[in-house]
């Protein structure tokens, strides 16, 4: 447990020392949200109607983009090999890396989502549920996405492979995340959707690290 914490601390420290890269996912998130009113038209009622799904899709894509570099550096400089051969559990490494990655990239996304939601005319009553659904959903996106990253991390030409592998598995999170915001925007309770998201959260956080660890072992072996 203490080693898990020291790992998270190390990652956070590293991220702090190269903070220039950290903001990129955030900017991407904002840009995708900007594209929709431009592409679809800035009618306020229309935007308010599609805002839940739109913010969720933008957050999903930003999370996916931020994942690309998750293990790349550790793979290239040989740290991953050292981990694999060490007596430490690779699952713990994956856990630590994902938690720190979530803190660094997804938490800021969640924080700015309300601002973007307001620009899209989402009713203010739904903001709380939007925050909660993103807090529950983005870790799942990260943990499930990490499986795809781990499988493709040793490949030279993998840029479009990651979304192809990962996006189908994002569909349940998208469905329940967007729906939670949507029903609360129409003034109903989103408890059901949030419970299911919480279930996916527990399932993803317990099972995915094992798949990630075994995928990393495969990637290291090539």
């Amino acid at each position: 447990m203490s080693s898990l914490w020291s790992l998270i601390r190390r990652d956070l420290l590293l991220a702090y020392r190269r903070r220039g890269e950290v903001g990129n996912a955030l900017i991407f998130f904002g840009l995708v949200v900007l594209l929709f009113p431009i592409g679809i038209g800035a009618s306020e009622t229309l935007l308010a109607q599609i805002a839940p799904g739109l913010i969720w899709i933008a957050a999903l894509l930003a999370t996916l983009m931020s994942l690309d570099s998750l293990f790349k550096e550790d793979y290239q400089d040989g740290t991953l090999e050292q981990w694999t051969l060490s007596p430490h559990s690779l699952v713990a490494f994956v856990w630590a890396r994902l938690i720190s990655h979530w803190l660094i990239t997804a938490l800021p996304l969640v924080a700015v989502a309300p601002v973007l939601a307001l620009t899209l005319n989402l009713p203010a009553d739904a903001i709380g549920v939007l925050l909660l659904s993103l807090l529950l959903g983005t870790p799942v996106l990260m943990f499930v996405g990490a499986i795809g990253v781990a499988l493709t991390t040793g490949l030279q030409k993998s840029s479009l492979l990651l979304p192809l592998l990962v996006l189908p598995f994002y569909i349940p999170v998208l469905i329940f995340g967007a729906s939670a915001v949507e029903v609360s925007a129409s003034g109903w309770s989103a408890a059901g959707q949030l419970y299911i998201l919480a279930g996916l959260f527990v399932l993803g956080l317990t099972l995915a690290p094992f798949a990630v660890a075994s995928a990393l072992k495969v990637s290291v072996s090539q």
Binding site: T152, G154, L155, S158, F169, A211, V218, S219, S221, Q222
Partner: peptide
Amino acid sequence: ALYNAIENKQTAGRAMSILTLVG
């Protein structure tokens, strides 16, 4: 696509098996 992207077929086979199970 994953199988075809990985040059080493031994690795490709195992990566593909993991993805199949995740699926």
